[in-house]
Design a binder for these strands. Structure first.
Length: 301
DNA sequence: TACTGAGTTACGTTCTTTAC
DNA sequence: GTAAAGAACGTAACTCAGTA
């Protein structure tokens, strides 16, 4: 799999593209394009790669990817047995309302958001996300003019909301064809073998590198050590198994790719600041205490 | 009391980082 | 890209807590 430059095919007369993506699993490869992309995950979970950021995503994950920023979403393979991955994706050019619109007085905050999005930004405030989800769902039904107004309203809300940067400040899109072919080989290998144990030398061999050279390379490109990436991926899977199954901690440890319970506990503790058992207990306590969802925030799927 | 599952510790092996 | 040192991991053996 290579990094792809994708030309977004805008419909003549349309200012932006707003679509609901519904697939068994998100199929877009690592790619970039000059259009900005606002993505709201409706169903599915896994890992998203944006610039040099590698993080877990879950339903209601809301992310704005700036122009020419490499990105792709990778589903958890174990969650695809009985469902679809769904997301609302809005792609638009930063000058969809004219070259200088966002430099006008009163629109500077949106201009700042567009600039910040070149590192990729996510929005964590639940009230903002609920509001944007509602507006994105409505956006799908609107005509061109109303869509543009709707997107303007969404950008206005997002620009006033707290943001979390995804890529590091030092990140520059330094991926070339070779880098991305290599990283895609690594990601594919890891996701296809995450349940089993594998040695770092296997991955290094895959790229015709020494183990040491591979460690250098991976850290430089992702700002994480390879084992950090593996652990975050495995613990992410373990958390879902803790929540969604009643399997024992040991079973979940082995199913997440750990060969020892002790290391699983150590890793889980260091990432989550609590033991797997306590995590499961806290989740169920929290779920049992949840009030009914207010009617205006419920959405049919 | 015995059994089971969860968590801890010590030590050998493997991985990551640093200096070149 | 390599070598070496330090950090992190995996294994085995252990303790502790809950339960029948």
């Amino acid at each position: 799999m290579k990094i792809h430059f994708i030309k977004i095919n805008t419909v003549p007369g349309e200012l932006l593209i707003a679509t609901e993506v519904k697939e068994r699993k998100f199929s877009a490869p690592l790619h970039y394009h000059p259009e900005l992309e606002l993505t709201l995950i409706l169903e599915s979970s896994g890992k998203r790669f944006i610039g040099d950021s590698i993080q877990n995503f879950e339903p209601d994950d809301l992310v704005l990817v700036g122009e020419n920023l490499p990105h792709f979403w990778r589903n958890d393979s174990n969650l695809l047995k009985d469902g679809f991955s769904r997301a609302i994706v809005v792609q638009f050019n930063k000058s969809f309302l004219g070259e200088s619109f966002f430099t006008l007085n009163g629109a500077n905050h949106i201009n700042r958001l567009i600039k910040n999005s070149t590192r990729g930004v996510c929005f964590r405030d639940p009230i903002t996300k609920a509001l944007i989800k509602d507006k994105l769902i409505r956006l799908l039904e609107l005509d061109t003019f109303e869509k543009a107004l709707g997107l303007l309203e969404i950008l206005n809300i997002l620009a006033k909301s707290d943001i979390c940067y995804l890529s590091s400040p030092e990140y520059k899109a330094h991926f070339n064809e070779i880098d991305c072919t290599r990283l895609n080989k690594v990601f594919n290998y890891v996701y296809n073998n995450i349940n089993s144990s594998f040695e770092i030398s296997e991955i290094a061999d895959l790229l015709n590198m020494s183990v040491s050279a591979f460690c250098h390379y991976f850290k430089k490109r992702t700002q994480k050590t390879f084992m950090q990436f593996i652990n975050e991926t495995r613990i992410g899977k373990a958390k879902r198994l803790l929540i969604e199954t009643d399997k024992s901690i040991a079973e979940i440890a082995y199913e997440s790719g750990y060969n020892s319970l002790s290391n699983f506990n150590k890793q889980f503790n260091s990432l989550e600041k609590l033991s797997p058992k306590l995590f499961r207990k806290k989740y169920y306590d929290y779920a049992n205490d949840l009030p009914d969802v207010p009617e205006h925030l419920e959405y049919d799927s």
